[in-house]
């Protein structure tokens, strides 16, 4: 198991446990983290599971696909350096302690 540290839109923090191989979106969904909607179910289709990955962690994920890039261009909250769709972020064991910030708006 590894720990994902979510920083919510109101500034509060939640640390959750998840098995490697699952995604940041699933970590949010399984633990009822508010603000990650993933309306499409997690298939890089809707752009409503947008998160900001902490600077130290963002390089550890594969680069966004063309479709993720397209959706990141139009997220409701502004796109920043660590912007990613959380359904596209599978977690590995070396990501224990990762920090993920949830934006204040998804739609």
């Amino acid at each position: 198991m590894l720990t994902v540290n979510f920083i919510l839109a109101d500034g509060s923090k939640r640390a959750v446990q998840i098995a490697p191989g699952r995604t940041v979106k699933e970590a949010a969904e399984d633990n009822l983290i508010p603000g990650v909607l993933a309306l499409c179910g997690g298939t890089c289709t809707c752009g409503t599971c947008h998160v900001y990955v902490g600077d130290a962690w963002v390089e550890r994920f594969a680069k966004p696909s063309i479709d993720e890039e397209g959706l990141l261009e139009g997220t409701a909250a502004e796109r920043r350096e660590g912007s990613r769709l959380s359904c596209q972020l599978p977690l590995t064991e070396d990501m224990d302690g990762i920090t993920v910030t949830v934006p204040d708006q998804q739609q």
């Binding site: 289709t45 409503t48 063309i66 479709d67 397209g70 959706l71 261009e73 997220t75 409701a76 708006q105």
Partner: peptide
Amino acid sequence: HTRLRRLMQPAFTPRRVA
């Protein structure tokens, strides 16, 4: 499907709707 969806996607982003 992927090709058609990419054509349509820019019109329907959450930002554009907001």
